[in-house]
Amino acid sequence: MGVDAAVPDLQVTRERLRRLREQAAARDVAACVVTPGSDLRYLVGVGGSSFERLTSLVVPSDDALPMRFVSPALEFAGLGHIPFDELGVEVRTWVDGEDAAGLAVEGLPGGRLAVSDMTPALHTLALGGRHGGELTLAGPVVRELRMRKDPAELAELRRAGEAIDRVHARVHEWLRPGRTEADVAADIAAAIVEEGHTVAEFVIVGSGPNGASPHHSVSDRVIERGDVVVVDIGGPVPSGYNSDSTRTYAVGEPAEADVVRSYDALQAAQQAAVDVVRPGVTCEQVDQAARAVLNDAGLGERFIHRTGHGIGLDVHEEPYIVAGNDLALEAGMTFSVEPGVYLAGRWGARIEDIVAVTDDGVESLNVRPHDLVVL
């Protein structure tokens, strides 16, 4: 089975489809072809993944042309409850051997055809060949909708943040000397589900020198007394909206002499970045706020990644909090603020909260203390 679905809110869905047409027209796109993934889930509540059979939502920019949902007949049986008629979306099903790409683009005007960013080449090339126009990415069109969360989306992200905070509050139950990172990660993954997520999307337990690798996962390294341990965890709640939060722990007093001073600077850097968040501030200004504190502390070269990433139906999405991104923040944008310091071969630390831009400032969706937690 390639796709699944939840019943969408009709008013919200109609507005999202209207805005998609508007954004496509503004970007000189003749039509968007949205295939399974987070964009399709955002637009009409259809989740799942792309396989060799093409499923697509076709949205012309010209509102005089009908929208179209193209689905293998064998999969549409599971989507019959989606009110496509009420949304003004034609349904075209197909069976093996028929030209699905041709069904998708039939009757579309020439010009630029925008295809979902993660569409398999198998489908992208077929769509381009049948349409004949220039192919482009749909991501820049859809992100203009998805970057600004509505109240219902913000509520789900708060729910996800509260759930992952409850897991961090329990880390002391599992993190102790003599256990491996993998042992601890297994307990954390179970707790992520127990506390309200559908699945543990990722669990990073980086102890001692492994904490100096920002995307270390887990290993069979045995945790030792004196280790600094980075715990970065998250996953989706039933609505599909994600959590992502990092806290740094010490198993007893840190063995490395520079941990306390460096961690104090990291904590100040994370807070400085959160403090500047408000409408009108650019993404790169938030990044610079964190980086400036670490530069002043002589740790700038130890901060080796961007300050944050947007979050919603994807763990990583727009906006990205990084140097060179002059996008101005707006109310409803949600993203991580997660500076880190990494001393190769020795130890590392990171502090991460998800924040939401409000009308006049910022709301943190994670409220666990930022102090180095000594267990």
Rank of each mutant, 00 (worst) to 15 (best):
D232C: 06
A182R: 13
G252Y: 07
V357M: 08
A356P: 04
I223T: 03
A5V: 14
A77M: 11
A200L: 13
V367K: 10
G128W: 06
R146L: 14
H309N: 10
D4H: 10
L10P: 09
L137R: 15
I354T: 15
R368M: 10
E330M: 14
A101K: 02
H131G: 08
D258W: 11
L365F: 03
P60V: 02
A121Y: 15
R346Y: 08
P238I: 09
L57I: 02
L87I: 06
V203C: 05
H316F: 12
V367H: 13
E256F: 07
D314W: 02
L113Y: 00
A182E: 14
A100G: 10
R261G: 13
D9V: 05
I82E: 02
A25K: 01
C32H: 00
I321T: 08
R247W: 13
V218S: 03
M1N: 11
L372C: 03
A290R: 01
P254Q: 08
V70C: 07
A182V: 11
T136L: 01
G111T: 06
S71D: 08
E256W: 11
R278L: 08
K149M: 01
V203Q: 03
A100Q: 04
Y241A: 02
L157D: 07
R14F: 07
A101H: 09
D296E: 14
P279K: 06
R146M: 15
A30P: 00
L365N: 02
N325F: 06
G88Q: 02
A121V: 15
T124I: 12
R14W: 03
G97F: 08
F303L: 11
Q267D: 14
L175K: 03
A101P: 12
G308C: 10
A255K: 15
A77H: 11
E153R: 09
E338Y: 00
G2I: 04
V322E: 09
G196C: 10
R176I: 09
Q270P: 05
D275V: 08
A101D: 07
H370W: 11
G300M: 02
R166Q: 04
A344T: 14
R166A: 13
P177R: 08
A186F: 00
D371M: 03
L135F: 12
G48L: 04
I354S: 07
G128F: 06
L79K: 05
A186P: 00
L343R: 14
A250W: 03
L329T: 04
D287N: 15
A160I: 13
G348C: 09
V281I: 10
D287H: 15
V229P: 02
R291W: 07
A200Y: 13
L266K: 09
G345Y: 13
S213P: 08
R41D: 14
Y241V: 05
